[in-house]
Write a protein that binds this DNA or RNA. Sequence first.
DNA 1: TAATTTCTTGACAAATTTAGTCAAGAATAT
DNA 2: ATATTCTTGACTAAATTTGTCAAGAAATTA
Lengths: 154, 154
Amino acid sequence: MRLTKKGKYAVSAMLDIASFEDKQRSFVKIQDISKRQRIPNSYLEQILRNLRREGLLISVTGPNGGYRLSRKSKEITIADIVMSIEDRLDSTECGGTADCLLGEECLSHSLWSQLNEELESFLKNKSLADVLSKNKKTITKSSSKENNNLIAVG
Amino acid sequence: MRLTKKGKYAVSAMLDIASFEDKQRSFVKIQDISKRQRIPNSYLEQILRNLRREGLLISVTGPNGGYRLSRKSKEITIADIVMSIEDRLDSTECGGTADCLLGEECLSHSLWSQLNEELESFLKNKSLADVLSKNKKTITKSSSKENNNLIAVG
DNA sequence: TAATTTCTTGACAAATTTAGTCAAGAATAT
DNA sequence: ATATTCTTGACTAAATTTGTCAAGAAATTA
């Protein structure tokens, strides 16, 4: 299981673009996103490329060009984004077929399947709009608690 | 976010050991686990070493030696295991402190925090015993559905 | 048309992580 | 003593992630 920096960058970039949704006909430039979200410019190119290919973004070249969402921010889920980017979904042995141990189902198979479902439904139920609106409310300089996350997301 | 093969191996090994819980005073050998779960022997050594250090296993050297659980299988959670093994919890930028963008909280921060919590509570609520008992019931040659998992766990 | 802006593409390279190996040693039982 | 089994640390290879770069194409404006 794996959710990398690349995936996180993708989500940040999409949120950035989504936050300009209201401004009609305005396109957001790679450079600007790169600066605001602190994502290496050329890496970001690569990432937006994927998101465009998957139909999540629309792009226009030339002056005043850039990117904007292909659908409303309410209609793009975090799962959509992550799935576009993280192609390395590492489904070796157990991957869905349940024949992990040469035909036998390994002891932990159903555990991982459930975990997958859990994650999937979580990410499918969050739209860009959801995340943005939650953000506006939570400016409470949130908990500076210890970082003892089980699985942290850089 | 990252849950690697190593972590998966660890869980499989623990489940294997747990399945011998009833047999009093019996210790499970690395070699046997390695064969049954198809985990490279020397890699497994390294993994069990960690699990022992974290107090999840008890070991005995010499003939008839091996490993057994330090607590009842009901009292060891999958989270315990994963946390012992996956030290690479990759908490770079955002890691808990919420100052991802040089002091500012990045747009996706709360999203990832929530995801962490979600995963964590899932894994904390599953004991080895839980997984084993579920396994006994579900010998229904489970769904051979497509592998379109969002985040697969090899 | 020329110049400028901005995305597009593919190939490449460095850094990091994961996965796995090995050999020498220590502990225990018979 | 000897055989068995864990213990340790250091090492290596493969894979993945994280980038970089340069040449090009499309659109706008003058």
